[in-house]
Design a protein around this nucleic acid. Sequence first.
DNA 1: CGTCATTTTGAGGTATTTCAACGAAGGTGG
DNA 2: CCACCTTCGTTGAAATACCTCAAAATGACG
Lengths: 241, 241
Amino acid sequence: MADASARSGKSLAPFRARPFLNLTGEEDAIRLTERQREELASIGVRVRVRPRTAIYQEQAPADSVFAVTEGVVKSYRELPSGKPLVAAFLFPRDLFGLAEGGRYVNAARAITDVTFYRLPVAELAVLLKHDADLAYSFLAKVTHELREAQRRALLINRPDAAGRLAMFLVWMGERVERTAGMPLVPLPMTRSDIAAFLGLTLESVSRTARALERDGLVKFEGRHFVRIVDPTRLARIVADV
Amino acid sequence: MADASARSGKSLAPFRARPFLNLTGEEDAIRLTERQREELASIGVRVRVRPRTAIYQEQAPADSVFAVTEGVVKSYRELPSGKPLVAAFLFPRDLFGLAEGGRYVNAARAITDVTFYRLPVAELAVLLKHDADLAYSFLAKVTHELREAQRRALLINRPDAAGRLAMFLVWMGERVERTAGMPLVPLPMTRSDIAAFLGLTLESVSRTARALERDGLVKFEGRHFVRIVDPTRLARIVADV
DNA sequence: CGTCATTTTGAGGTATTTCAACGAAGGTGG
DNA sequence: CCACCTTCGTTGAAATACCTCAAAATGACG
């Protein structure tokens, strides 16, 4: 399945989640306690894989759940026609390994160099049923994933390609530190992946990207970076639903 | 907010969930223990509302989470353009009330006569942090919602209206007992709701529905029922991605 | 039974998909 | 280290399908 893996006694890398229903309105992330991180680390295996490595196949027996600590993973499935459909991009602190009936509903593959923790569900379930706080944290995390899924659904609901792509770029930009003006946003995935995520064809993504660049909204630097040149107008396109 | 509400000491109506990661492959639902149902019922309020009643508004302070026991609810939001977008239809045993930053991300409205439990989050959070099994059940339930959200995303990813509508009808049909051949599937929501869910215009839904009927795949009986006439060909359209 | 929202139907414009071919980049092996 | 090859991305032109605008018909509801 994975290239290299070694049991690790070190504490699990910071794993952040948001409350299921946040009454206070605070945006601060919940952090696991040191003990909880150690618990997870004790049952987990740290794995590092190279780009394009398959982490698990669609419909394979779901024996583990995964937590990204470094890099980007895509969760996807092949449609009957053979066209791929990307269900989600997973970034550090994200969980993946959604299953139904004991089998993974999607396949997962590394996009970049990736480090993740592999947590056997059998042992994880024991932990969760034993530690209400831990279960609560996972609940918060899955709730966050649910919001992301709804956001994506909202995104691909709009009929116009420009709006979809603009929304995607803004979304990707949100997870980069906006230190300097005109942030350089990394796009580790391929155009095909973006197309498969947005529900567009590769050609549409390519054309729309060029159009946004011609209009001076963004500037692509290489294939894996975008510079947001005119955030205001870009935001206007995004809001124009 | 709601028409009538009364604190209830009766046990919470059956609330079913699936395991977060189901190793055994069993499809049987997890049921809450009698004690857990009583705990929930003790903090919950049973509410009955009439069709089209607003349950909460978008961006309203999120003080409760809800569990449907009877009827159908829609979770939706108004886009800046004024066009509504349906995020999900909620059926008995479904949870709703997704929040972020202490506010509901969507609005919720009853489609039919609806009975639901309203669970104050402050008290619910206390319960969840004390009862790992209960938290686990909620985790399983939210995971289920996440799968549904992904399914919808998959659904509206396809460009063809016929495929989307066919997928929707099959999906609705899955939740009805297939006792007799040619099941009569209820469609409690309006065509506009369906359009807002599928990411199509009302006109497209109407035209596509008529086209499916002309081709002898389904037969609409009134505005709120469909009979699946040719499940095989309908399934073929659904699979034809 | 009348009013009004919902749905159906029609015709035209437009955007995306398809189909096809070229060009660029990255990875592999000699 | 270079050359080849495979994958990915760009560009062009035509067809299809959906959307928009508009108006009539059906059904729901008081």
